[in-house]
């Protein structure tokens, strides 16, 4: 059986795919990158917290012009996941202004980034519309 790895370390694949933030123990500020300290309160202690897998699109753009190798157009967005902002692409949606809107309700979904020489598949994430 071939193995899987997440595209980034803050994407947890098990038991169900979700994002994990580093939360400052003293002020509650949340971050996704490896931390040296808290930018808000200067604390240095963090614990991991699961981020809600549903949210609302607070900002988006449809990128038509990007670096070579990046498939365009794609939708880049900021998703408000119950108070935690997440940067992600919107996926499983037609990338045009008729199909993407501010305030749209979305949920986390995964996609395949590709398979490396050893047969390991990298799993990425995005948010897809919650259809009514």
């Amino acid at each position: 059986m071939s193995s899987r790895v997440p595209l980034v370390d803050y994407l947890a694949l098990e038991p169900e795919p979700h994002l994990v933030a580093h939360e400052c123990v003293s002020c509650g500020a949340r971050y996704f990158d490896r931390r040296n300290g808290c930018a808000n309160c200067f604390g240095t202690e963090f614990h991991d917290v699961d981020v809600a897998t549903t949210g609302e699109v607070r900002a988006f753009t449809i990128v038509a012009y990007a670096a070579p190798g990046i498939e365009t157009p794609f939708v880049a967005a900021v998703v408000d996941c119950e108070g935690t902002s997440v940067r992600a692409n919107l996926i499983n949606v037609t990338p045009d202004p008729e199909h993407v809107s501010l305030g749209m309700k979305v949920r986390l979904a995964t996609n395949s980034v590709g398979t490396d020489a050893a047969g390991t598949e990298a799993i990425g994430f995005g948010f897809e519309p919650i259809s009514n």
Partner: peptide, 18 residues
């Protein structure tokens, strides 16, 4: 971010227009 591949275009955009 412990990324195994480039994230621009996969997790949002780094371009200034975007």
């Amino acid at each position: 971010y412990g990324a195994v591949a480039g994230v621009d275009g996969r997790i949002g955009t780094e371009t200034m227009p975007g």
